[in-house]
């Protein structure tokens, strides 16, 4: 009677094992199929990219050949561009002294003259004489006017004095607009 009672337990164990076997088989087949699919996809991508790379290398070779044939033109262009760019930068930044003198001649009162001018490092130092104090004032206000500010950024009176004739000798330092 004890033997008969054991049979259902053994059967149940057998059933569990068979179920496990089925699951494992299912999973192993799924793993194999996934691996195969992933391998195919990877190989397809790889082949495509290799083909693209070969095309790009061929295209690079063609374009390099075109550039090699225009080597002389490239030399001319590189030298011309280099010199033209450097020259253009210098010309744009240099001070046009002729223009500065023209503007000063428009700003200076008629009874004022300069005896000495010195341009240095963006500054202008002038010495000169004015007939009267009004002319002197006119000179300074002219430099400080709207027209004057196109040329001059600041005015410093270094010295100012009159002599027995009533003329005023002056020395000014002015900052020039860049």
């Amino acid at each position: 009677m004890a033997d008969i009672n054991l049979l259902p337990v053994e059967e149940k164990a057998q059933e569990r094992v068979q179920a496990l076997q089925k699951k494992l088989s299912f999973l192993s087949i799924a793993a194999l199929i996934s691996t195969a699919i992933f391998t195919m996809i990877t190989l397809v991508f790889f082949t495509g990219l290799v083909s693209t790379r070969n095309e790009l290398i061929a295209a690079a070779g063609d374009v390099s050949g075109r550039i090699e044939r225009q080597k002389k033109i490239e030399e001319l262009l590189v030298v011309t561009k280099s010199k033209a760019a450097a020259a253009s930068n210098i010309l744009d930044a240099r001070v046009d002294h002729a223009d500065t003198f023209q503007k000063l001649s428009e700003l200076i009162p008629q009874n004022v003259y300069f005896s000495d001018m010195k341009f240095s490092a963006g500054k202008l130092v002038v010495s000169g004489k004015a007939k009267t104090s009004a002319d002197m004032a006119g000179l300074v206000s002219s430099f400080l006017s709207e027209k004057g500010s196109e040329l001059i950024s600041s005015v410093t009176v270094d010295s100012l004095g009159s002599d027995e004739t009533g003329e005023y000798q002056f020395s000014l330092t002015m900052g020039l607009v860049k």
């Binding site: 020259a87 210098i90 010309l91 240099r94 001070v95 046009d96 002294h97 002729a98 003259y113 300069f114 005896s115 000495d116 001018m117 010195k118 341009f119 240095s120």
Partner: peptide
């Protein structure tokens, strides 16, 4: 000077009468 074909700059200009 400023119209020369060569690019030049005038610096440290001093003028006296």
């Amino acid at each position: 000077l400023l119209s020369l074909s060569r690019v030049v700059e005038v610096k440290d200009l001093s003028v006296a009468a």
